[in-house]
Design a protein around this nucleic acid. Sequence first.
DNA 1: TGTTGGATCAACT
DNA 2: GTTGATCCAACAC
Length: 196
Amino acid sequence: MSSKAKKLKRGFYLRPTLEVARDLIGKYLVYRTGGRLLSARLVEVEAYIGEDDPACHAAVGRTPRNEVMYGPGGFSYVYFIYGMYYCLNIVTEVKGFPAAVLIRGAEPVDGIEIMNLNYGRTRQVRLTNGPGKLCKAFNLTRKQNNLDLTGSNLYLEDRHDRAARIKSSARIGIKKGVDKNWRFFDPDSSYVSVKR
DNA sequence: TGTTGGATCAACT
DNA sequence: GTTGATCCAACAC
């Protein structure tokens, strides 16, 4: 880990969601668990913004499930989907405005052997190219919902890499809101889940 | 109280 | 290209 690594502060997350999403590409997700350190470089994210975005969980209004999206930016939102998978989101914007960035893909950096154990892989597989796979490799579940990302357990940091190329596209796996190009990814990474 | 479908993935044909 | 695995939140009744 570079000595230049800098944890992202609250102010980073309180900005407009599309800016946060774009800026998250090339940043590092860090998770300290059981005395071990897991980290991965983010290469694919999607923005979900407000009650007027039909694909956003907040489109149905405030519920117990999406409550954390209504809080201030810089907290984790982990939800369960399809009976088998968890997805990790980064809450953005100021308190009262529901928005978040879904982490869809990342390149494993630290603790890869732990990720393999968490995944219980049956064969050689990319561990973190997909939102469900990433949570499985990091062992993130509902217990990691609503964590303060300015704390010391789960956070994001800037390791001052050279800037990545960034492309945008429609979001993946949704039926509504496909007109918006709110997905951002690094086209040079092999850990992007869907090439388009 | 019951039904339904989802911001997924892997293993098939 | 299609499907099975498998849970829970949201909504209808």
